[in-house]
Design a protein around this nucleic acid. Structure first.
Lengths: 165, 165
DNA sequence: GTCTATACCCGGATAGAC
DNA sequence: GTCTATCCGGGTATAGAC
């Protein structure tokens, strides 16, 4: 499992092959299938691991922060930038919900929902903003000179004030 | 070119192979290389085509709208949902900027910059929100019962009012 | 649990004849 | 411009021996 995460984080999704995984742990490719049913099982395990880690980070970031949404934004961005390939594995493809532990997805999202005043639509808007910021940064889609931090602050400010109409 | 776009839109990036493209236009795979330098040239051509089309749609949506940002949001979402694979080819990977016509990227983004009151940070925040909403919808990452339209309205409302502090 | 050997897919791209 | 033949790489996965 650890080897799989290393491969993914070091080399992206293309580097996460059953052959390479076997090589990394010092056995031949076919032997992997004595430990893992198939590649999807590996991906699911990495998703569960990442989702758990990310959720805990968010909980820690929110705890005792005077501006939960801003704290969450910082935690969100820093985790995504530190683990871009794992972030994409989790958030840039359909989630295998039926193979995830009960409540894991909800727990990872709970801090944001709380920070958004328990308004699910506002929470989703805030999530979309954060996800969009991260994806555009990771793929280098912002123009070269863009001040990404300023855009984050602008979005957090706008989404933090439900009264603003 | 048209065949390439069909392949991409019908079957996603995996369907866009030089072999399939050749098959679609009725020749053998190697003959493709008499028309296209390599696969990247094909992708660049599709990106240019899509960026141009998308930019024109945004200009049309903004023209004469009383709420430009809301109109842009509708146009953005509908184009992305109608062409998900082309959208991702354009927005979910690094842009080959050096192979794009001069000014194309800027023109596609101009309507949003204008709608955001010429504040680049606010424009980028709004773009990130829209991009995040689209990506999360396309990948099915929102929870099953989520009201995606409501989240769009919430985000557009929040990002539309720069005065709100 | 590990191995070798293998089956079966796919991809991008080139050489050289016509 | 098209063809055939081919080279190279990659991948998931199974069979059967040890």
């Amino acid at each position: 499992m650890a080897a799989g995460r290393e491969l993914l984080e070091e080399g992206g999704p293309d580097a996460l092959s059953m052959r390479r995984l076997a090589g990394r742990v010092g056995i031949r490719a076919p032997s992997i299938y004595k430990h893992l049913a198939d590649k999807e099982a590996l991906e699911v395990a990495l998703i569960v691991d990442g989702l758990r880690e990310f959720g805990e980070l968010c909980e820690a970031a929110v705890a005792g922060a005077d501006d939960p949404l801003a704290a969450l934004a910082v935690a969100y961005r820093s985790w995504a930038v530190a683990h871009p390939h794992l972030y994409r594995l989790i958030n840039d493809r359909p989630l295998p919900r039926d193979r995830l532990p009960e409540g894991l997805e909800a727990r990872a999202g709970a801090p944001l929902v709380a920070a958004a005043g328990r308004d699910p639509d506002r929470a989703r808007a805030a999530w979309a903003f954060a996800h969009g910021m991260v994806m555009l940064e990771l793929t280098g889609r912002f123009p070269p000179g863009a001040d990404i931090g300023a855009a984050w602050r602008e979005g957090v400010r706008a989404l933090a004030s439900p009264e603003a109409v």
